[in-house]
Amino acid sequence: MKRPFSLILALVICLFAFPSVQAESKKEAGKRYVIIHADDAGMSHSVNLGTIEGMKKGVVSSASIMVPCPWFKEFADFAKKNPELDYGIHLTLNSEWKNYRWGPVASRDQVPSLIDQENYLWDNVGQVMQHVNVKDAEKELRAQIQRAKKFGVPLSHLDTHMGAVVSRPDLLEMYVNLGIEYQLPVLFVANLDPKKYGLIAEKGKELKVVLEKNGLPVLDDLVQFYGEPDYEKRKNTYLETLRNLKPGVTQIIIHCGIHNQELQNITNSSSRRDGDRRVFTDPKVMKEIDDLGIEVITWKQFHDMARTKVAAAE
């Protein structure tokens, strides 16, 4: 009698459990996650202060560091002392400001195609696309990753400053391979529009499969907003973006800073960076995110989600 009773009991449990499993699966499928990500840490002291405030007092869940920049060490020290937070490397192949510039981490004679006539990294992405040799780029990006590790930064992911590392198919493939080698997720978006991105979108389809096979996550959507300097309009744009998030994992890229003389001397985006800091440390904005049922996650959590998915499929 024990064996039939056990089978009947197991069947009853399965029948009752199956609908709840289905319901849970549907619930998860419709879940909205967001990574609120601050770019450009290490760029300047004022950017470091704004980014740290966003992570400590606000809802900024992740940041990435520009290793070649003069204020890298300050932020690296913060990261080492606060390993519970989430940090990536903002892989950098260009130096865009007029009077505040930086060169490569690798020795200049080892990466000659990366530098301009003034011995700095190229000014813009178009110049990177035109001049940079992929082997030189790989040497430099490895040097940036290794420098961050040497300074004790607990790394969670890799991404790209101004998209320079994803501007050509060969650079994109090298970037993905670095992520796989270091077992660090890379900023990568599913289903790029081929009309807009051409060969990059075509290469992206191939590389998306490679990333997922290696347990590295791929974003469902990516949002960034430069535009409006007016604070209230800027805040309303972010709130509207949050209200309209699609199911899946979206990253919102922001740039935090303090609107002071240092940052004003570097960039005309100073007030916008200050606005991003203020928006994502605003208790009303944080409450709105919670009320919308959106879960704010880190790249570490996103990576764990991907690994769990791979393990479940095996």
Score class of each variant (00 low, 15 high):
residue 226 Y to E: 04
residue 131 H to A: 09
residue 178 L to A: 06
residue 202 E to M: 09
residue 165 V to P: 01
residue 176 V to L: 05
residue 242 L to A: 09
residue 103 G to C: 06
residue 102 W to K: 10
residue 238 Y to W: 14
residue 191 N to K: 07
residue 217 P to T: 13
residue 220 D to C: 02
residue 185 P to S: 12
residue 158 L to W: 10
residue 226 Y to R: 11
residue 204 G to N: 04
residue 112 P to Q: 07
residue 188 F to S: 12
residue 169 P to K: 12
residue 226 Y to N: 05
residue 117 Q to T: 12
residue 149 K to Q: 15
residue 112 P to H: 13
residue 234 R to C: 02
residue 107 S to R: 13
residue 146 Q to F: 14
residue 208 K to T: 15
residue 226 Y to F: 09
residue 102 W to Y: 14
residue 211 L to R: 08
residue 134 V to H: 01
residue 186 V to Y: 12
residue 144 Q to D: 08
residue 140 E to M: 03
residue 184 L to F: 09
residue 158 L to P: 01
residue 228 E to F: 01
residue 181 E to R: 01
residue 139 K to V: 14
residue 205 K to F: 03
residue 106 A to E: 11
residue 126 G to Q: 14
residue 171 L to D: 03
residue 134 V to Y: 03
residue 236 N to R: 08
residue 197 Y to I: 01
residue 193 D to M: 06
residue 226 Y to V: 05
residue 203 K to F: 08
residue 216 L to S: 09
residue 206 E to Q: 07
residue 212 E to Y: 12
residue 164 A to L: 04
residue 118 E to H: 15
residue 167 S to C: 14
residue 226 Y to P: 05
residue 106 A to H: 02
residue 223 V to T: 08
residue 121 L to F: 09
residue 230 D to A: 04
residue 192 L to E: 06
residue 160 T to W: 12
residue 236 N to I: 00
residue 121 L to S: 06
residue 106 A to P: 03
residue 148 A to V: 15
residue 104 P to I: 10
